[in-house]
Design a protein around this nucleic acid. Structure first.
Length: 816
RNA sequence: GCCCGGGUGGCGAAACGGCAGACGCGAGGGACUUAAAAUCCCUUUCCCCUAGCGGGGAGUGCGGGUUCGAUUCCCGCCCCGGGCACCA
C-alpha cells in the first residue's frame, strides 16, 4: 500500500504522490483551458471522438474508462504530433433505461439525470481525459433535442419518415411496449410475463432506401473489419428473383422472392405468411374456418417465440391453388408461420427437395418432394433423404429444357425465360428493416407532429421547436398502448399550426438512437443556438478523424449515424456522406476471466482504484492488459507493476545528472524506443508501446546507474499520452513552462535507432544451433565463415552445406 | 445452423514466414539493511543426461500439408467468447 510510503525517499527527493499531482494538474487544465482548443483558428484540426456514455445511477463503468483512455491516448498523441485536437464528451441521457430506473426509485428523471451527470463529470475528470468541457452536451437538453426534432422534420420533408402499423412486443403486466432486446425467450425481461404481439401505429425511417449505399460505402471506409462484417450481415443483401405464381381460377397472382430460381421446377407448393394480404382471397370456403383459426393463433404468438422458439413446422392448407409458371402444374397454397411477412414478399415458392425448411414442412404435411438438382455422382433418380441445398457443383434435372445446366447458369437462364413472359425479374432483397423510431414512453424528445381534424397531419413549424417535454409527474405507461403524454390534456391539446383550431399532439417520443445518430455533428457547434451545426465549423472539423468505441453498437448506433449523415448530405447540409473516417472497435473488458456483472458482484469501481493507485497507474494498467482492439482481463494483481514503473520514472527525473554526456548505448536504446512507441501508439498498439518504455526504463536504471537528463527528458514526453499527470509534473520539474502537450514529440534518429552489430541466428537444418555477433550488413560468405568458426555450430555441419539460406540481418540457415 | 473473434509458461501477454515466451505479475534465491519496506542482481516452459560446468530432446488446442524454416500460410477437426438466427 502506498499510504505507508514515506513522503521523501532515501535519495532525498519527495516521493511520487499521485493524488496530489493529479488534482493539481486537473485544476490547472481547467483554469488554463488547456484542453479547449480554438475551434475557429485551428490549422491542423483533429477530431477525436469517443462514444458518449449513458449516465447511469451506478456511475462510470471501468469499461468506459478503458474505452475513453484508449481514445485519450490517441488524442493526446495527435496533439503532440502538432494537431489541434478536439476531444469532446457528452451524455446520452434519454431513453427507457433511465425511465425505468426513475420509476423504480421514484425520482423524476429530470431530477435524476442531472445528478447522474454531475457524478459522471466528476469521475471523468479524475481519469485525466483531455476533454474540452466547454463543448459538453446532453441529449436531454432542450437546446439539443430541438435539433433532434428538426432532423425528424428533415426526414419527413423528404418522404423518409412515415407512419405505419407495425407489430410490437407488448408486456401485459408492465403495460408497455418492449424493445426486442427486452424480450427474453418470449417473456418480459423484467417480470417474466409472456409477451404479446400488438399492432400499433408507428413512425418509421426509410433506412432501407439507403441499404445499397450503406453497403457499398463499407468497401472504402477505414473501419475495423469486425464492425464492417457485422453491418454487412445486418444489411443482409440477397440476390435472387421475384416470380409471379398465377392463382388457379382467379385473376390474381402471388409474387414470391427466391434466391434459388434455378430450382423452380421443384416448387411443389406455395406458402403465404399468415399476415399476407392474399390469404383471404386464396382461401376456399371449406378451409376458411381452419385458416382463420390458424392465422389468429399465429398472430398471438409473440415475435420472438415465433422466430427463435421451437422450429416445429405448423401450417394450414388454404384450399386454393397456384400455377407453377415453369411446369404449368397446379400446386397447393398453404399458410405457415415459418414464412415471415417482413422479409421478401411474404410469400415463397416451396422447393422441399432443396430447402431444409420446405423439406421439413413437406414431410410434416405429406407434400410432394421433387429432385431438380443432382450432386456430382447423383442423377435425377437418386432419392432425397434430406434437402440437397448445395448451391454449387450440382446440375439441373427434371427441369426441361434446362437439364444439365449448373445452378448458376440455371438461375440466369430460368429468370430470363420467365422474364420473357413477364413472370420474373431479378431482384435484390435486404434483411434490413425500416427503423421504428416511435416509443410509447415518456423520457425522450416528443415527435414534432400535430394532428388536426381539419387539416390532417401537420409538422410542427421550425420556429415552434423545440416541442418541450412537459415535466409531468405521472409518466408511468398504461395499458392503452399510447404514450403517457396523451393523458396530459394541457400538453396534448394544441392549436393547429395551419388553421389555428384545437388539434392534438403526437404523443410518441423518438428512439434514443436518434439522439445519438447526430451528436458528433453538434459538438463543434454547441454555442450556436440558431442552427444544429454551423456550416463553417462543420467544414473545418468533420468528418470525425477517428472514432473508437464498442462493437455492441456496430449495427445500431453506427449504422443509424451513417444513415442520418447520408440524409443530411443529400439534403445539402453536409458535404460528406460518411461521418467517421476511421472507426476502431475496442474489445471487451472482463474480470478474472469472467464477464463483469452486478449480479456476480465483480464490477470494478473506477473511483476505488483511482483512489488507491492514481489515475495514471490505472490508465497504464488498462492499456497494458492486452491489445485495445481485443479487450482485456482486469486482474488486481497486475496493477502494482505499472505503479512501480511510474515510481521509477519519478525517481529517474529526480536523481538524474545533467553534467557530462549521456551514455551512447542508452541513447541508442532511447532512439529505438522512440521509434517503437511512435509506431505502436499511432496504430493503437498501446500494450507493446508501454512494454517498450518499460524495457527502456530497465536500460536506464539497470545496475543502479544514474541516468542523464538527456536520457530521461524524452521519456517523459513518450509517457505523456499514457500518464498525463505525472508527465506534466515532471515536465515542470525539469524546468519547462507550459504544458508538456504543447511540446513536440521527440524525433528518433534512424541512424541511432539502428544497431551496427547484430546477433545473427544460425540454424542447421532449420534448428537453432547458436548465434554469432556480426556487423549488421555482413555479406553471406562472411556470415557463413563466422558461423563455422564457432565449434558448437560447426559440429553439426559435416562437409559443405548443400544449401545456404541467408536472411540479411536475421539468420543463416545451413542445409546439410 | 450461419458469421466474426480467440486458444502460446503458474497468470496477463510478445513475436515483418526467420533465435517462441519480449514486457509485466507471481514464485524462488541473493545483495544492501540491526530489521523491514523500497531498490538492485540472478533464476523461473517441460522432460532427459551430468556431482558440476555443460549438453540433448520436446514444445504455441488436435491431425495433415506447403516451405530450407510455420505461433504465423493452406486443408480438415476440437474447444472457448461474441453476434445473427425459420431471411426463402
Amino acid at each position: 500500500m502506498t499510504s505507508s510510503t514515506p513522503n521523501s525517499t532515501a535519495a532525498g527527493h519527495a516521493s511520487y504522490d499521485p493524488a496530489a499531482i493529479e488534482q493539481k494538474w486537473q485544476e490547472r487544465w481547467r483554469a488554463e483551458r488547456t484542453n479547449s482548443p480554438d475551434l475557429t483558428g485551428a490549422e491542423r484540426p483533429y477530431y477525436q471522438l469517443m462514444m458518449f456514455p449513458y449516465p447511469s445511477a451506478e456511475g462510470l463503468h471501468i469499461g468506459n474508462v478503458f474505452a475513453f483512455t484508449g481514445n485519450d491516448i490517441h488524442g493526446r498523441f495527435q496533439r503532440l504530433q502538432g494537431h489541434t485536437v478536439f476531444e469532446p464528451i457528452g451524455f446520452d441521457a434519454f431513453g427507457i433505461h433511465s425511465e425505468n430506473y426513475a420509476l423504480k426509485v421514484g425520482i423524476h428523471p429530470m431530477e435524476l439525470i442531472p445528478r447522474n451527470i454531475a457524478n459522471f463529470r466528476r469521475q471523468l475528470r479524475r481519469v485525466g481525459l483531455m476533454v474540452d468541457w466547454s463543448h459538453e452536451l446532453s441529449t436531454t437538453d432542450p437546446a439539443y433535442y430541438k435539433w433532434t426534432q428538426w432532423i425528424f422534420l428533415q426526414l419527413l420533408e423528404r418522404g423518409l419518415a412515415y407512419r405505419g402499423k407495425a407489430a410490437v412486443n407488448w408486456c401485459p403486466s408492465c403495460k408497455t411496449v418492449l424493445a426486442n432486446e427486452q424480450v427474453v425467450n418470449g417473456a418480459c425481461e423484467r417480470c417474466g410475463t409472456p409477451v404479446e404481439q400488438r399492432y400499433l401505429e408507428q413512425w418509421f425511417f426509410k433506412i432501407t432506401e439507403y441499404a445499397p449505399r450503406l453497403l457499398a460505402n463499407l468497401d472504402w471506409i477505414d473501419w475495423s473489419d469486425t464492425t464492417k462484417t457485422a453491418q454487412r450481415n445486418w444489411i443482409g443483401e440477397s440476390e435472387g428473383a421475384e416470380i409471379d405464381f398465377a392463382l388457379a381460377g382467379a385473376d390474381a397472382s402471388i409474387r414470391v422472392f427466391t434466391t434459388r430460381p434455378d430450382t423452380i421446377f421443384g416448387a411443389t407448393y406455395v406458402v403465404l405468411a399468415p399476415e399476407h394480404p392474399l390469404v383471404d382471397a386464396v382461401t376456399s370456403s371449406a378451409q376458411r374456418e381452419q385458416v382463420r383459426a390458424y392465422v389468429e393463433r399465429a398472430g398471438k404468438r409473440d415475435l420472438v417465440a415465433r422466430k427463435v422458439g421451437d422450429r416445429e413446422k405448423t401450417g394450414v392448407f388454404t384450399g386454393g391453388y397456384a400455377v407453377n409458371p415453369a411446369t404449368g402444374a397446379r400446386i397447393p397454397v398453404w399458410v405457415a408461420d415459418y414464412v415471415l411477412m417482413e422479409y421478401g414478399t411474404g410469400a415463397i415458392m416451396a422447393v422441399p427437395g432443396h430447402d431444409e425448411r420446405d423439406f421439413a414442412f413437406a414431410r410434416a404435411f405429406d407434400l410432394p418432394i421433387v429432385r431438380v438438382v443432382a450432386a456430382p455422382g447423383d442423377d435425377a433418380a437418386t432419392p432425397l433423404a434430406e434437402a440437397y441445398t448445395d448451391n454449387e457443383g450440382g446440375r439441373l434435372v427434371h427441369s426441361p429444357p434446362f437439364d444439365g445446366l449448373t445452378t448458376t447458369e440455371g438461375k440466369a437462364r430460368i429468370v430470363a425465360w420467365l422474364g420473357e413472359h413477364g413472370r420474373a425479374k431479378p431482384t435484390v432483397t435486404y434483411r434490413l428493416h425500416d427503423w421504428t423510431i416511435s416509443r410509447q414512453r415518456y423520457w425522450g424528445p416528443p415527435i414534432p407532429i400535430i394532428y388536426c381534424d381539419a387539416c390532417g397531419m401537420q409538422a410542427v413549424p421550425e420556429k415552434d421547436l423545440p416541442v418541450l417535454l412537459p415535466p409531468i409527474t405521472d409518466f408511468r405507461p398504461d395499458d392503452s398502448g399510447v404514450s403517457p403524454l396523451a393523458r396530459h390534456e394541457e400538453w396534448y391539446r394544441v392549436p393547429c399550426p395551419e388553421c389555428g383550431k384545437m388539434a392534438r399532439r403526437e404523443t410518441d417520443v423518438s428512439d434514443t438512437f436518434l439522439d445519438s445518430a447526430w451528436y458528433f455533428l453538434r459538438y463543434p457547434s454547441t454555442e450556436f443556438t440558431d442552427v444544429p451545426f454551423d456550416a463553417e465549423r462543420t467544414k473545418q472539423w468533420l468528418p470525425v478523424n477517428i472514432y473508437i468505441g464498442g462493437n455492441e453498437h456496430a449495427v445500431l448506433h453506427l449504422l443509424y449515424s451513417r444513415f442520418i449523415t447520408m440524409v443530411l448530405h443529400d439534403a445539402g447540409y453536409l458535404d460528406f456522406e460518411e461521418p467517421f473516417m476511421r472507426f476502431r472497435a475496442h474489445g471487451l473488458l472482463i474480470r478474472n476471466g469472467a464477464k463483469m456483472s452486478k449480479t456476480k458482484g465483480n464490477v470494478v469501481n473506477p473511483d476505488e482504484y483511482i483512489e488507491r493507485w492514481g489515475a495514471d497507474t490505472i490508465r497504464l494498467y488498462l492499456m497494458y492488459m492486452g491489445p485495445l482492439e481485443e479487450g482485456g482481463d482486469f486482474r488486481d494483481s497486475g496493477i502494482s507493476g505499472m505503479r512501480r514503473f511510474l515510481d521509477r520514472l519519478w525517481a529517474s527525473a529526480h536523481e538524474m545528472r545533467s553534467d557530462g554526456a549521456p551514455d551512447d548505448a542508452v541513447i541508442r536504446k532511447l532512439h529505438r524506443t522512440i521509434r517503437k512507441v511512435t509506431e505502436d501508439t499511432s496504430r493503437l498498439g498501446y500494450n507493446t508501446a508501454i512494454a517498450a518504455m518499460m524495457e527502456y526504463m530497465n536500460t536506464l536504471r539497470g545496475g543502479e546507474r544514474v541516468p542523464h537528463r538527456a536520457e530521461v527528458e524524452p521519456l517523459v514526453q513518450l509517457v505523456a499520452p499514457y500518464a498525463p499527470h505525472i508527465a506534466e509534473e515532471l515536465w515542470e520539474r525539469l524546468g519547462h513552462t507550459g504544458t508538456v502537450f504543447s511540446s513536440r514529440w521527440p524525433a528518433f534518429d534512424p541512424a541511432l535507432a539502428t544497431e551496427d552489430e547484430i546477433e545473427l541466428a544460425v540454424q542447421v537444418n532449420g534448428k537453432l544451433r547458436g548465434t554469432v555477433r556480426v556487423a549488421r550488413d555482413i555479406a553471406q560468405d562472411d556470415a557463413l565463415a563466422a558461423a563455422l568458426a564457432v565449434p558448437s555450430i560447426a559440429k553439426f555441419v559435416t562437409g559443405t552445406p548443400r544449401k545456404v539460406i541467408f536472411g540479411p540481418g536475421r539468420l543463416l540457415n545451413l542445409v546439410v
